[in-house]
């Protein structure tokens, strides 16, 4: 059964190739526009590129997760999820992971190349990579939660960022401080541990929260 669900999700993602390429293109556009606007100051770019990478990750996760359940809400699949005897929590967990694979993982793959472009030291680029690997699943699951909260409301595009961005801030603070620490030679492990703790807290409870909000969306 799980195999079927994963297979289907992969298939529908690959039939909608723009959902995979949109984050990547967005990412490369922003990354390449910044040096053009700011000028080729290596020290300055070295300093701001990690932040820009994080900004693009935030916006791409917002873009892809704000309409996450919309299709399934419109074609009535959420009712089918709720009336099927299989574990909905497990399905939702899988869907979060798959959404992360298709929106954030492509960007994470390109981080080493971006680091070479901007001459970021190896140790720093590793820390950027780690903060992204740990932080982006949290961003995706919070974004999906926001989209499930606004399902019953037509034209909800503005609402999702407003709801989710405050929850993004702790993750941003800790990843920014980890990157800051490593570039000034300070220990950065503590921030990574806190991010991991946040991930371990958010990811397991998210399917249960989502199940509850989906039930609410059907009831309203």
């Amino acid at each position: 059964m799980l195999r079927k669900i994963i297979y289907k999700e992969f298939k529908s993602y690959f039939r909608n190739l723009n959902s995979i390429f949109l984050p990547l293109i967005f990412f490369f556009l922003i990354i390449s526009i910044f040096p053009l606007l700011i000028g080729p100051d290596k020290n300055l770019l070295n300093k701001i590129i990690p932040g820009i990478v994080w900004i693009t990750v935030i916006f791409t996760t917002l873009l892809s997760s704000s309409n996450f359940f919309k299709d399934e809400y419109n074609n009535g699949f959420i009712e089918t999820y709720l009336t099927s005897e299989t574990s909905l929590e497990l399905i939702l967990f899988l869907k979060i992971i798959l959404c992360w694979i298709f929106t954030c993982l492509p960007i994470i793959f390109f981080i080493p190349i971006v680091s070479i472009f901007f001459d970021i030291p190896l140790k720093n680029s590793f820390v950027i990579l780690f903060t992204l690997i740990i932080g982006s699943p949290i961003l995706v699951s919070i974004g999906i939660f926001g989209s499930s909260l606004t399902l019953g409301i037509p034209k909800n595009n503005v609402l999702v960022p407003v709801i989710t961005l405050p929850f993004y801030i702790p993750i941003l603070i800790f990843s920014a401080s980890a990157i800051e620490s490593v570039s000034s030679g300070l220990p950065y492990e503590m921030q990574l541990y806190i991010l991991t703790a946040l991930l371990c807290f958010v990811l397991p409870i998210m399917p249960y929260l989502l199940k509850y909000t989906l039930t609410l969306s059907i009831n309203n």
Partner: peptide, 8 residues
């Protein structure tokens, strides 16, 4: 609503 996925 038929609960059919348009991409499949």
């Amino acid at each position: 609503k038929n609960s059919l996925n348009n991409d499949l």
